[in-house]
Design a protein around this nucleic acid. Structure first.
Lengths: 226, 226
DNA sequence: TCAAAAGTGTTTGGGTTACACCCATGG
DNA sequence: CCATGGGTGTAACCCAAACACTTTTGA
């Protein structure tokens, strides 16, 4: 049976750009390079693949991860010199940068790196650059469709803040009017009554996301596959 | 390390409907039920996950499969009573029904079942009904976007044939004019010169798919992620 | 002549993008 | 007054759906 691992692609938005959490590898292979945090599946501790990803996150990052999405599985005979056959199941998580991640077991240091700095795939371990690119693509598609996975954007927020967030993820400017119209026509956001924010100029309206309203009508089997 | 398997969701279009290849299980668990063909990963024989899927296809179905697409990986402690922890990597393949599949090792009989007969998930082994639904969703999305994976539709074909194929996959009628316009405006098909088909009434123009033209301009990294 | 293949044309509608404006407000 | 938040309106564009209608062709 192969050597089975879980790799984590953790993304957040800071300083106006989409960033990925990487760790400097201490051990071979690829010692000294940056790589995705990950760990070995433990069949005596994990009841499922997602549970394994959460345990790895607790051990390596000091916390559980919201919004886990399975990206793919990669495996082969020459993937990892530590084992004759290695298989990795890759998960993506979207977090807020304020929530501290603490380096844990076997992890010396963690750092946020802008995703457009790693797109070339130069100095990353294994095929991690490709995995990150895949996670970024999937995430950008979601945001372009005005999907903001729960817990990723700090609530409450103003519409200019939400737009700046989307622009940071997509890496391009968006039209203000179109963005606001799309946010309002789809039942994405709800205005919080009365609340505003004190700022330098005119205060902005505060919003939160509309809950999915999980019992709306006739959706019987697999209500919203997309 | 867990027990690692590959499961195959093989789809084709016959008698006007999308069908999935299922085998009647001879052994426990779920003996007597229908299930997806699959097999155990052999790290001494398979160089990659996709190679493992192809070897399983050769052993169980007597042939290799075109157009393999990895759907997901599922795993857990209580997934399969034959092992304390079981992990399955699921692949989808799109084939033509004429290409004979011959039951092989450990497979008594294979049968095509219309996918809308298994959507409820009643009498299928494990969580195979859910896996089939996921494969069908992904395939319908592709066809709705006028993507016909290479080798799935017998070439050459007429546009009415291609439309009937798409309607069988989607399970609903399509507008003739819209379908033809979409096929022509996108560079999906190429008319074969002179050729027509002898039939009962006016013969139809024969077409084949336009090759992707893989060296068109500046697409450097990951040319067409969609 | 029939029925299917093929083609032309028009209308409608949704959705996005891109503008040009307007007003409101706190410092 | 100024910069930002918030809003209205409009035009252009693309695409898909729907429908009417004509022409072509082999049996």
């Amino acid at each position: 049976m192969p050597f089975v691992r879980t790799e984590l692609v953790v993304l957040c938005v800071t300083v106006g750009a989409l960033q990925v959490l990487l760790s400097r590898r201490e051990e071979e292979p690829h010692a000294g390079l940056l790589g995705l945090p990950g760990g070995v599946l433990r069949i005596d501790q994990d009841v499922s693949l997602e549970a394994a990803a959460q345990r790895v996150a607790r051990e390596r990052l000091g916390r559980e991860l919201p919004n886990l999405l399975q990206l793919c599985a990669v495996g082969g005979a020459d993937r990892d010199p530590r084992a004759p056959w290695a298989l990795s199941v890759v998960y993506r998580s979207l977090v807020q940068p304020e929530l501290a991640v603490k380096p844990g077991k076997r992890v010396k240091s963690l750092e946020w790196v802008a995703v457009d700095k790693v797109s070339d795939g130069g100095d990353l371990a294994f095929d991690h650059a490709r995995l990150i690119a895949q996670a970024v693509d999937a995430t950008r598609e979601q945001v372009a469709a005005m999907e903001f996975p729960h817990g990723w954007v700090p609530e409450p927020f103003t519409l200019p803040q939400l737009q700046a967030f989307a622009e940071a993820v997509l890496g391009r400017a968006l039209d203000k009017v179109t963005f606001r119209r799309r946010a309002n026509t789809s039942d994405l956001v709800v205005a919080l009554e009365g609340q505003t924010r004190g700022g330098a100029f005119r205060p902005a309206q505060l919003y939160r996301f509309q809950k999915p309203s999980h019992a709306s009508g006739g959706g019987l089997l697999r209500p919203g596959a997309r």
